[in-house]
């Protein structure tokens, strides 16, 4: 079973790479700065949020480099929202193609998540620039040995997003309303994820509710490494791997069960 899945996967890697590079070419066609936008965009976005929250609302975090705090959360949430959104629309958007040629359908959401993922890797460059060059004597972050664990959190984020992308794209076939509903959910999600504030400013009850948000754990994982130079707790590891695997597998099952019906709704 696994062997068959892998063989099938291998057969279509070329198509997948073609689709990812297509997205890249189309995205930056006719923009003067091109791929530089992948670096600039999160930087500028962060600058706006930094001004709003640290200057206007006077957010303070003792002993923490606020810019890095903001940026670690922002790059991950940005990945999540963009990838899940484009994965969601990928099936319906490719109906004309699906109607003519046989292509395994999982390729569409997966290639979108990969494409945004490459963009995400580019946004890590400005993140590291900020880690290295900002903060005063007390709050300066240093690169440490635990950085080797960072890919784990990003992998969990990826699996979680792919799984959710499968679920959303399946729903979108039968219920186009999901495009709007999920847009609202994303807005809510952004405020309910501690990106620009710390979870400890909330009441203990509310904190428990926030604990159910997988994104919080992925972000928290990277923050304990980048900001506090510590190994993430066992608890943190388990939450990351548990939520991401659960959503990924659940998404795969839903998608597999329903994919043969997609074509009738095209």
């Amino acid at each position: 079973m696994l062997g068959r899945i892998l063989a099938n996967f291998k057969r279509y890697t070329f198509l997948m790479s073609q689709m990812v590079s297509r997205d890249f070419k189309v995205k930056y066609k006719r923009s003067v700065l091109g791929v530089l936008w992948s670096l600039l965009y999160p930087l500028l976005q962060m600058a706006v949020m930094a001004v709003v929250f640290s200057q206007m609302f006077k957010f303070r975090m003792e002993g923490v480099n606020y810019l890095v705090y903001l940026m670690t959360g922002l790059v991950m949430f940005n990945y999540f929202s963009e990838a899940s959104n484009s994965a969601m629309t990928s099936i319906v958007g490719n109906f004309p193609l699906m109607n003519k040629v046989y292509i395994p359908k999982y390729i569409f959401p997966l290639s979108k998540c990969l494409f945004v993922g490459i963009n995400f890797l580019l946004t890590l460059i400005p993140l590291f620039i900020i880690i290295l060059f900002t903060g005063d004597a007390n709050t300066h972050c240093v690169i440490n040995i635990y950085y080797l664990c960072l890919p784990f959190a990003y992998l969990c984020l990826f699996l979680f997003t792919v799984g959710l992308g499968f679920i959303l794209s399946t729903i979108s076939v039968f219920l186009r309303d999901i495009f709007y509903i999920f847009g609202i959910i994303l807005t809510m999600w952004q405020y309910f994820t501690p990106i620009f504030y710390d979870i400890t400013i909330l009441t203990p009850q509310l904190q428990k509710v926030f604990y159910l948000n997988p994104l919080y754990h992925y972000i928290d994982f990277t923050r304990s490494i980048i900001l506090y130079n510590t190994m993430p707790s066992i608890n943190n590891w388990l939450w990351c791997i548990g939520t991401s695997l659960f959503v990924f597998i659940f998404g795969c099952i839903i998608f597999k069960l329903k994919q043969d019906k997609f074509i009738y709704y095209a």
Partner: peptide, 17 residues
């Protein structure tokens, strides 16, 4: 993909086929 050039489309469409 209409945005892409003929060269790029040969590869893309070939992969689709």
């Amino acid at each position: 993909d209409l945005e892409l050039t003929a060269r790029e489309n040969i590869y893309l469409n070939g992969a689709v086929m």
